[in-house]
Amino acid sequence: MGSEKRSVAAAAYDVLAPAYDVLTGGYAYDSWIAALQRLALSHGLDGRRVLDVACGTGHSMLPWLERGYEVVGVDVSERMAAVARAKGLEVHVADMRALPPLGQFNLVTCLGDGLNHLLEPEDVRRALGEMRCALAPGGLAVFDLNLLTAYRDTPDTIVEVEDRVVLWPGAGARIAAPGGVGELVVDVFEREGELWRRTRSRQPHRHHPLVDVLGAARAEGYAIVGVYGQHPGVRLEDTADEHVHAKAIVIARR
């Protein structure tokens, strides 16, 4: 794990942490996790211990808890973890390429583009290997991956809640070629008396071709048991196409 790489991701999300729930408030986390739970159960999920890698402020942890699972989270950002802990969640601060020893889990998830924040293919493989080590024998990993479609037409987004405005221009994050790199720049404006304070989060993204990531997962000892294409929202299909779907959902067994 390179300290420079870790500091880039941590710094980006430390800045974004106070506004992250504002920015993602409209996301259908409950429906998404319900769909992923159904898929995991259909592929033999057995047991109720879940590790959520790159858990952020805990949005994707809460639906598992509400369904009776024991959930532990890991995130690289101390401030994101602090927001999650304020919700009563157990979250540890660590890089996904060097997970702490937390025992073994029946299910490990890595959602919300976590792997696309890693800029080197070897870092993706390393992260997948760390997640495999956290799985109990026969356990399942569920991770998503942004496909080329997600990067070809990234929109501008503005969210305003009370004294906070989040501005997310999409142009910088666009990636046209397989394996390309873009940068998502998010500006957060917060009112301080008569003035506004701006902070900026820079998040480099890399498109990792799905076929390469599946190969890396197999090399780390996974059996791929399901690959699904996801359209915006929670519309899943039984195949994943780089030029059709925004995301791929991968289910792999240790």
Results as ranks from 00 to 15, higher is better:
R85A: 12
E90N: 04
V91Q: 02
A94K: 03
A94G: 06
D95K: 11
R97D: 00
A98K: 10
A98N: 08
L99V: 14
L102A: 07
G103C: 04
Q104I: 10
Q104N: 05
Q104T: 15
F105I: 12
L107Q: 05
T109M: 05
C110R: 03
L111I: 13
L111R: 01
L111H: 06
D113I: 13
D113K: 05
L118T: 07
L118D: 00
E122Q: 11
D123S: 02
D123V: 02
R125C: 09
R125Q: 15
R125D: 02
R126N: 04
R126S: 14
R126I: 03
A127G: 10
L128P: 00
E130K: 02
E130G: 05
M131V: 11
R132N: 07
A134S: 15
P137R: 12
G138M: 11
L140H: 02
L140S: 08
A141M: 14
V142W: 00
D144E: 04
L145G: 03
N146C: 08
N146W: 04
T149Y: 03
T149E: 10
A150P: 00
Y151V: 06
R152L: 12
R152Q: 14
D153N: 15
D153Y: 03
D153E: 13
T154M: 09
P155R: 13
D156R: 08
V159T: 09
E162S: 11
E162Q: 12
V166L: 06
L167H: 05
L167A: 14
L167D: 00
W168D: 08
G170Y: 08
G170R: 07
A171G: 00
A171Y: 04
G172V: 13
R174L: 08
I175D: 02
A177L: 07
A177D: 10
A177Q: 13
G180S: 06
G180R: 06
V181A: 03
E183F: 10
E183W: 13
V185S: 00
D187C: 08
D187V: 11
D187F: 13
V188D: 08
V188A: 09
F189G: 01
E190C: 04
E190D: 10
G193K: 05
E194F: 10
L195H: 05
L195N: 02
W196H: 08
R197L: 15
R198W: 09
R198F: 08
T199K: 07
R200I: 12
S201W: 15
S201H: 11
S201P: 01
S201F: 15
H205T: 07
R206W: 13
H207C: 09
H207G: 06
P209A: 13
P209E: 09
L210R: 01
L214I: 15
G215K: 06
A217V: 00
R218S: 11
A219R: 13
E220S: 13
G221L: 11
G221W: 13
G221A: 11
